[in-house]
Write a protein that binds this DNA or RNA. Structure first.
Lengths: 228, 228
DNA sequence: ATGCAATGTTTACCCTGTCTACATAGGGAC
DNA sequence: GTCCCTATGTAGACAGGGTAAACATTGCAT
């Protein structure tokens, strides 16, 4: 078994072509997840087929059933990977941002949108209509975590008198709706003609979160929009 | 041919059971669209099957191909019906709202969210990942129309000095993102535990659009939040 | 009435999800 | 090292679905 264990989303991690004809794959489960993501990305959602996924992983069409109960379980694995990566990217960007709660909030929002733009298949699976039963993410790094990130930021902002008062959950929902809506419009190609490329998307996300945050700012607070 | 032509989304329009055994259906095309929507609503997206749709419409599994090139074409028809209904519902609610641009904007946003909550299958198809080629809605009542509704509202608000200055397209995108995000979170059952029922959803949409609009209000303008 | 175009039916093909029985490999007990 | 158990991959089968081709029926225009 390879020592590389914590796979990251960014590097597809080439197989070493030496050990090609082995009966056991080594890490078929992750290979299947990767193949599914690549397939969605290249051919679209309708082309996502367990058999084609298996084909790309170099195994027979029934092999995936050793690792996933059914097609939906594979999608759940993709979604879980997405939730983990998203919350990690949000935390990373928040860590490099300035320390003010408003800047942190802005960083979280931009990271949310950027995750969607960079990983559309994951985002689509995470929030798409593919699961009949509500996706249960009880892990410490799940979606709830990303949401709680926002809640805490907004709570801090209110405590510091930088954000307008009111139910912090309502403000958080506002922020979440904005970034989720923007991300969805990107991913579902509703904004294609307006924005091209990562930089443009990032700039737009920046503008939007700034707009929102200055909108939600406490009327009495001075504008400390220092991240530009 | 029946005289009823402009079908509405709200009344499923029972078939008259007298003319049951006719070879020609009468309005199979619309019946197929209705059946598809009902099927998605009842059994979920994965259960959407051309054959089951045909079954529900009382025809053989190949009959739909006389009206739709393929499954995707049927979904396009569902989406088109959704865009038409959505923009109509937005216009209706805006018409009954007070005349101020801000109230109109709020009405449009609430109508957007309410459409999604009331017609989840349509909303999902309209914005879901089901189309490979970008959906082309060139009709006067398409999505562009709904978007332009927002743009005009915001332009009026700016002209009246009620909304902060800046690129009206940016402000419109903010508003659209917020309501689209909120609607998506509703439809994708991300907010199920928080909100139950139409009234709660409407109240939440109202709160959110108010939050956004007061946020985007011109700093110098007095708060004329008269719709409460 | 008659013939054509529109609409529904039958049949057939290949692909997909999934189940079952079988094959192989790798690791621990001895 | 040998034996055996379990994890993992393979082969084959079956039902259901998308879609194309050929056929049947109807309504309408002439």
């Amino acid at each position: 078994m390879a020592t590389r264990s914590k796979r990251t989303l960014k590097e597809p991690a080439k197989e070493t072509p030496v050990e090609k004809a082995r009966y056991h794959h080594g890490d078929l489960r992750q290979a299947l997840v990767d193949a599914a993501v690549a397939l969605i990305s290249e051919e679209g959602f309708n082309a996502l087929t367990l058999r084609e996924v298996a084909r790309r992983a170099g195994v027979t069409h029934a092999a995936p059933y050793r690792h996933f109960a059914d097609k939906e379980a594979l999608l759940e694995a993709v979604a879980l990977e997405g939730f983990r990566t998203m919350s990690r990217e949000m935390r990373e960007r928040m860590a490099t941002a300035a320390q003010g709660p408003l800047d942190q909030l802005c960083a979280a929002g931009v990271a949310y949108v950027l995750f969607a733009v960079r990983h559309p298949p994951h985002f689509r699976v995470m929030f798409g209509p593919h699961f009949n039963h509500r996706l249960q993410i009880d892990e410490p790094e799940g979606e709830a975590n990303a949401f709680e990130l926002l809640v805490r930021c907004i709570g801090s902002g209110q405590a510091a008198g930088l954000l307008r008062d009111g139910d912090p959950r309502a403000l958080t929902l506002t922020a979440w709706s904005l970034v989720h809506g923007l991300a969805s419009l990107f991913v579902d190609r509703q904004l294609e003609e307006a924005v091209q490329g990562l930089e443009a998307a990032e700039a737009l996300a920046q503008v939007q979160t700034h707009l929102l945050i200055t909108g939600l700012a406490h009327p009495g607070a001075g504008g400390n929009s220092d991240s530009r």
